[in-house]
Amino acid sequence: MISFILNRALQIIPVIIGVTLATFLLAQIIPGDPADVLLGSMASEEARQQLRLSLGLNEPIYVQYAIYLKNLLHGDLGQSFTFAQPVTQVIVERLFNTSLLAIAAIILASVAGVAAGTWAALKPGSLRDQGLSVVVLFFNSMPSFWLGLVLILTFGLHLRLLPVGGMQGATGSSGIGSMVAHMVLPTITLAAWSLAVIARMTRSAILDVINSDYIRTARSRGVGEARIVLRHALPNAMPSVITVIGMQMGFLLSGAVLTETVFSWPGIGLAMFQAISTRDIPLIQGGILVLAVAFVLINFAVDILYAYFNPKVKLA
């Protein structure tokens, strides 16, 4: 297992290098002179040259990349002019908020999705199974910002049960209850799509393995149907479910941008949204880099989980 983990960890390195190259090149191919963007079109030619020099923009491209990498290693992602702060600081402050939302959403999506899928698989073709298919279709065909708006209208404005936006820290005056209350709607919004996909995958993966010989063996020894599904079918269905969950985690990161915007959730997504509308290139670059690295690390974790549920992978 250790060698398996090390092996996968080594494979990450070239991917991360590729990601830095991609984010670096992103800034290069965006049309317009960064100096123009930073100083505005009214700035003097002198001031622009000054800035170009200080940003190293006159150097050959590979030197620029080397500088970029060097700064990156020092944790320096440049200066965000929208927030008038270093990009690193902007991201670090918001990374926690985004992670909180994303983790809550993936937990909700996985737990509820696997539970719903398993519940449907216990009686395929039954009313509950068909009901689940309808819900899955509904969640999958609905854009998340629209769902967010509907939830805000229903629970926030109409029923006045939950706050409609913003975020409250657990350490704030109103404590953990308020924090959770603020999280409910954005979490549901963010999780809905993934929940549906995970439920559908869990159902079909369980039905795939339920006809296996070893399920028949367990039944022939008097094991009850609930145990059959939970202890025999579900663990063997997990590898395909985990793969889907891993893919959903990547999707959640991009979904966070929209959800955070709808709910004014102070995370990286909201900051990215603002950065894009103001062409704050260093912040866009930094945001993409952090999201991409997070995506790679999540996949790494999924691989290890996958191996855990499938003893044969460890040998490969």
Binding site: S212, D213, Y214, T217, S220, V223, N236, N310, P311
Partner: peptide, 24 residues
Amino acid sequence: MRAVRGSGIALISQDALTSLNPAM
């Protein structure tokens, strides 16, 4: 019927590789 299986009637199937749970 569940109670009969295993203690009343037991089954040995053809292919032991697929008849044993690979994850247990």
